[in-house]
């Protein structure tokens, strides 16, 4: 199915060096129409550089960069995108409505002021000066500026940093609504639960390359482990010899078991210890998968 989806932006073999540091080391990345793609990776993995290339802010040393089939520095390509950067000090003396009107003026068919404000949940802030807003409110205004041009592709670089849980979830709702309307979104984030909640496709970067690419479920299944924790006096060393048990250890009264076949192991555990209590079964999340992926990467890449 993926082959039939229109590609709206791509990096092909993109290389970017800053002096001796190679930020992107031949990266291939495709963005499809209408999808929400999360770009994950530890600091220095190349997320910001990849975004900067796609926005035309920096030139690639090698490889190709395309935005709607054009070079991203062509203004007609950028008229189809919306942008929310990690840090941008907007002019504080301007009112929110003035900032919105200014940004709307850059686009051929912008949303109305009311619609943009309502989508970003800033209707009550329109007459306030930007400098007088809290950090979280400023982020919401930046989000409104990103969506006001009715973009087909939205770049959100760490959008929820500095937001409280309530504001974050409101932003998630707004992002889902934009995606439902057919807007593609590229999201970089440090919060894995954010990627888990929103993304259809996750790309994990490390050392300037793509380490893994796929759906959230596919990424999670790369770490096909389930964690079992319970209070029991079974012997951890004996448990290690059971089939499908990858790891077992004792921690005080608790036993921790890692397994790729939780149903089998659980049945046997409950049989073996009728007094077993405080049972917890947890599937490995994106966080575990992410840690696994980026850790695997370290030894082989550090040689290079």
């Amino acid at each position: 199915m993926e082959t039939s989806v229109e590609v709206i932006a791509r990096l092909s073999g993109a290389v970017k060096r800053y002096g001796a540091l190679t930020a992107l080391d031949g990266m291939d990345l495709m963005l499809h129409r209408g999808e929400l793609l999360a770009l994950l990776g530890p600091n220095g993995a190349g997320k910001s550089t990849a975004i900067s290339l796609l926005l035309g802010l920096v030139h690639a040393d090698a490889g190709r960069v395309e935005l709607f089939g054009r070079h991203p520095q062509e203004i007609d390509a950028r008229r189809r995108i919306g942008v929310m950067l990690q840090s941008a000090a907007l002019p504080g003396t301007l009112r929110v409505s003035e900032l919105l009107r200014l940004t709307m003026s850059y686009y051929p068919t912008p949303r109305s002021l009311e619609e943009s404000a309502q989508l970003a949940g800033i209707t009550d802030l329109l007459s306030r000066r930007y400098v007088a807003l809290s950090g979280g409110q400023q982020r919401r205004v930046q989000f409104a500026l990103a969506l006001c041009g009715r973009p087909e592709l939205l770049f959100l670089d760490e959008p929820t940093v500095g937001m409280d849980i309530d504001a974050r979830q409101k932003l998630w709702v707004a992002i889902r609504r934009l995606v439902a309307e057919g807007c593609a979104v590229v999201l970089t984030t440090h919060y894995l639960e954010e990627a888990e909640a929103l993304a259809q496709r996750v790309v994990v970067l490390g050392k300037g390359r793509v380490l893994s690419e796929g759906s959230v479920d596919a990424l999670r299944s790369r770490v096909a482990m389930t964690r079992i924790r319970c209070v029991s006096d079974l012997d951890a060393a004996a448990l290690m010899r059971w089939p499908h048990v990858a790891h077992a250890e004792r921690d005080g009264v608790h036993i921790h078991v890692h397994t790729d076949a939780p149903e089998n192991v659980l049945r046997r555990l409950l049989d073996a210890d009728p007094a077993l209590s405080e049972l917890e079964v947890r599937r490995a999340g994106l966080a575990e998968a992410f840690t696994e992926l980026t850790r695997e990467d370290v030894p082989e890449k550090e040689v290079a």
Partner: peptide, 29 residues
Amino acid sequence: ASPASGMSLRGVFGAYAAEARSECLRYLR
């Protein structure tokens, strides 16, 4: 303006005017 591609001359002029207005306003304030 045709959707999602080119921008009318009037639109471009509007962007220039909006930018100039914002720049003056922010410093006057």
